[in-house]
Amino acid sequence: MIYIKVRYYYNRIDINGDGVPGVIVYLVGPFVCGTGGCSLVIFKQLNQSYQLISSFTLVNNPIIVSRNKTNGYNDLIMFVSGGGIEPYYAEIKYGANGYPSNPSVQPKVKPGTKVTGIAVISDDISTSPGIQF
């Protein structure tokens, strides 16, 4: 059997204002990352378990939960880079089917915009062993 190292980093935050913290999980490893970034999943707590809200590819940190809301959920700000594109910050808004899965095709945060919110995943992951599973 071959084992593939995948690390994850997580943080809990109430992303929809219901008073119950959800979980934002950033996955790092060869099968969940590429030149454009890694994978991210967001869960909301539902009774004694978790329900997937959205999953993303091509994610880099920092991941910021903005104070602005769309359709009852906080907007997300993600750094987009790699894969040959000019780096920028993207604004991801919650829609009818959850958050869009690819931040690299979302609108850019306009230069000079004051972003207010909480950076939920923002450490230098290259030096951290993370949590393996």
Rank of each mutant, 00 (worst) to 15 (best):
S101W: 03
I64G: 04
Q106N: 09
P111S: 08
F43N: 13
N97P: 13
G29C: 01
Y26M: 03
D18V: 10
Q132Y: 05
M1A: 05
K110P: 13
Y10M: 08
I2K: 04
V120Y: 03
L46D: 13
V20Q: 01
F43C: 10
Y89N: 09
G83K: 09
F79N: 04
D18L: 12
I92N: 06
Y50E: 02
S39H: 13
Y10S: 14
D124S: 05
Y94A: 09
Y88H: 15
S49E: 07
A90Y: 05
G83R: 12
Y8P: 04
A119D: 00
M1K: 03
V105I: 14
S49Q: 00
K110G: 11
I2P: 00
L40W: 15
F31D: 01
V23A: 03
P107H: 12
N102T: 11
N102R: 11
I92S: 12
K108G: 00
P129T: 05
V115H: 00
G34A: 08
F56H: 08
N97Y: 15
P103T: 13
P107K: 13
G37W: 09
G130T: 04
Y88C: 10
G95V: 14
V6E: 05
T116E: 14
S128C: 09
Y9T: 04
A119Y: 01
I2Q: 01
P62R: 03
G34S: 12
G34I: 05
K108I: 09
P129I: 08
G117D: 12
A119C: 03
F31G: 02
T57Q: 02
F133Q: 01
N68E: 15
K114Q: 07
Q48A: 08
Y8C: 06
K44S: 15
V120A: 00
K69S: 00
P103V: 13
C33S: 14
I42N: 07
N16P: 08
A96G: 13
Q106I: 07
N68L: 15
S81D: 02
I77E: 10
F31H: 06
Y10Q: 11
G112W: 05
Q106M: 13
G84Q: 05
Y94M: 09
A90R: 07
Q45A: 06
L40C: 14
G117E: 09
N102C: 09
T127V: 07
D18K: 12
S55V: 03
K108Q: 15
A90H: 06
K69P: 01
